[in-house]
Computed example of a mutant assay.
Amino acid sequence: MRRVEHVMGFPVSLRIDDEGDFGAAADEVFAWLRQVDTRFSPFKHGSEVSRYGRGELADGEPSADLREVLGLCERYRAATGGAFDVRLPGRAFDPCAVVKGWSVQRAAGLLAAAGARRFCLNAGGDVVVSGGPWRVGVRHPEQADRVCTVLAVTDAAVATSGRYERGDHILDGRTGRPATGLLSLTVVAPTLTEADATATAAFALGADGPAWAAARPRCEVFAVDAGRSVLRTPGLPVAA
Rank of each mutant, 00 (worst) to 15 (best):
residue 3 R to M: 06
residue 3 R to T: 15
residue 3 R to Q: 14
residue 5 E to A: 08
residue 8 M to I: 14
residue 8 M to K: 07
residue 10 F to H: 11
residue 14 L to V: 00
residue 15 R to S: 06
residue 15 R to T: 12
residue 16 I to N: 09
residue 18 D to C: 13
residue 21 D to P: 00
residue 24 A to L: 13
residue 25 A to C: 10
residue 29 V to E: 03
residue 31 A to P: 02
residue 34 R to H: 15
residue 34 R to G: 12
residue 35 Q to N: 12
residue 37 D to G: 13
residue 38 T to F: 10
residue 39 R to M: 13
residue 42 P to H: 10
residue 47 S to E: 04
residue 49 V to Y: 05
residue 50 S to P: 05
residue 50 S to W: 04
residue 51 R to Q: 15
residue 51 R to S: 10
residue 52 Y to E: 00
residue 52 Y to V: 07
residue 53 G to F: 12
residue 54 R to W: 12
residue 56 E to G: 01
residue 57 L to E: 02
residue 60 G to L: 07
residue 61 E to R: 15
residue 63 S to H: 03
residue 64 A to S: 13
residue 64 A to G: 09
residue 70 L to N: 09
residue 71 G to Q: 06
residue 72 L to A: 14
residue 77 R to A: 03
residue 77 R to S: 05
residue 78 A to Y: 01
residue 81 G to M: 06
residue 83 A to I: 05
residue 84 F to L: 08
residue 84 F to T: 02
residue 87 R to F: 12
residue 87 R to W: 10
residue 88 L to T: 11
residue 89 P to A: 12
residue 89 P to V: 03
residue 90 G to V: 06
residue 90 G to R: 09
residue 91 R to I: 02
residue 92 A to R: 15
residue 93 F to G: 03
residue 94 D to Y: 11
residue 95 P to D: 02
residue 97 A to I: 02
residue 97 A to R: 07
residue 101 G to I: 03
residue 103 S to R: 00
residue 110 L to K: 12
residue 111 L to N: 05
residue 116 A to L: 08
residue 116 A to T: 11
residue 118 R to A: 10
residue 118 R to V: 12
residue 121 L to S: 01
residue 122 N to V: 00
residue 122 N to C: 04
residue 123 A to L: 02
residue 124 G to M: 09
residue 125 G to W: 07
residue 126 D to A: 10
residue 128 V to W: 03
residue 129 V to F: 04
residue 132 G to E: 05
residue 132 G to V: 04
residue 134 W to D: 05
residue 134 W to G: 00
residue 135 R to G: 02
residue 135 R to P: 00
residue 135 R to M: 09
residue 136 V to S: 05
residue 138 V to W: 05
residue 141 P to I: 12
residue 143 Q to I: 14
residue 143 Q to E: 14
residue 144 A to N: 07
residue 145 D to W: 13
residue 147 V to P: 02
residue 148 C to T: 14
residue 148 C to L: 15
residue 149 T to S: 14
residue 151 L to N: 04
residue 155 D to E: 05
residue 156 A to H: 03
residue 156 A to Y: 00
residue 156 A to F: 06
residue 158 V to N: 05
residue 158 V to Y: 07
residue 159 A to V: 02
residue 161 S to L: 11
residue 165 E to T: 07
residue 166 R to G: 11
residue 167 G to T: 10
residue 169 H to G: 06
residue 169 H to M: 08
residue 170 I to A: 08
residue 171 L to E: 04
residue 171 L to W: 06
residue 172 D to E: 05
residue 173 G to P: 02
residue 180 T to Q: 14
residue 181 G to S: 02
residue 184 S to T: 14
residue 185 L to E: 04
residue 186 T to K: 06
residue 187 V to W: 08
residue 189 A to C: 01
residue 191 T to P: 08
residue 192 L to M: 04
residue 193 T to S: 13
residue 195 A to H: 00
residue 195 A to S: 03
residue 195 A to I: 03
residue 197 A to N: 07
residue 197 A to L: 10
residue 197 A to H: 11
residue 204 A to P: 10
residue 206 G to N: 11
residue 208 D to S: 14
residue 210 P to G: 03
residue 211 A to D: 13
residue 213 A to N: 01
residue 214 A to P: 10
residue 221 V to K: 09
residue 221 V to M: 00
residue 222 F to I: 05
residue 222 F to V: 06
residue 223 A to S: 12
residue 223 A to C: 13
residue 230 V to R: 15
residue 231 L to H: 14
residue 232 R to P: 00
residue 236 L to D: 00
residue 236 L to S: 01
residue 237 P to H: 09
